[in-house]
Amino acid sequence: MAKKMIRDVIRDTIDEEMARDDSVIMLGEDIVGGMGSAGGPEAIGGIWGTSGGLWAKYGSDRVIDTPISESAIIGAAAGASLTGKRAIAEIMFADFIGVCMDQIWNQVAKFRYMFGGKSKCPIVIRMPYGAGYNAAPQHSQSIHAMVTAMPGLKVVMPTTAADTKGLLTQAIRDDDPVIFLEHKALYGLKGEVPDGEYLIPFGHARQVTQGDDVTILATGMMVGFAEKAAAQLAQDGIGCDLLDLRTTSPLDEEAIMDSVERTGRLLIVDEAPPRCSFATDLSALVANKAFASLKAPIEMVTGPHSPVPFARELESAYVPSPDKIVAAAVKAMSYRRG
């Protein structure tokens, strides 16, 4: 076990997989950095520091620094993955998905099905996402609902250093396309990471706290916020069953239902806006499959129906806070029928 930051875990995991399997390649803007400059290659190693040293080790045929061309990055990664490689593509900010949407949605996601199951496209698309940097409307969004809605994609949202290793290894070895969403605000988070080979199968939630009163479902940065809220609620005698869903597709329905059947109350925390969202999706699922267990209306704490604003005060008002989570849990607890 070593203690590492999530950004280093990403680098090291890719390193281990590239060493293990020659077919693993990487593509992205500035993932080497410094190409064609006086300072020379490796001037940055990815603007998030997630690929330092890999070019020196594996060379330009496997660590491919690209022009600013997101459509061609995803298309090229897709083409390579259809023809025997395992490509890891980096989209510098998840917001830039708009530029390469066709390649993801109509190409990568559909190959296997559309070609009658005769193809595989083992591509991993890494996308840093989320608010917290005051990076304004085009660099702060949480896009997981959009990709979760697309049949043919697996969607992963790790929140701890250990999970990052286990889920990224799984993603790279997976024969299907995986969208790997990295919350920007978590890159610097440190945690113990298992040594050696470590895989976490998709579709298994992580139990963060245990309690019998309210089930809280969260992803990404919201997991830590919910954990804070749960600690505060525990002091008031409210026990929270907090699940970090880890993958939004496949989804660990079993863990969700088991928990809701036990607590009878559900609170969903989602950084994204509220309509047609991951929160509404989970809510519909539970309302449909565990209606009889519910003792109170399902509560949702989400961002508002607006872009993510720039100013410090505005961004912090936008992002769900531990206080709002506490208030929603208390509301669920104090609900009385009729």
């Binding site: 803007e29 500035d30 950095g33 410094g34 190409m35 064609g36 400059s37 006086a38 001037a43 940055i44 603007i47 620094d65 690209t66 022009p67 600013i68």
Partner: peptide
Amino acid sequence: HYSEHTGESYAVG
């Protein structure tokens, strides 16, 4: 001559 950290001679074909 630069796009972020990358030299123009590398990225403009």
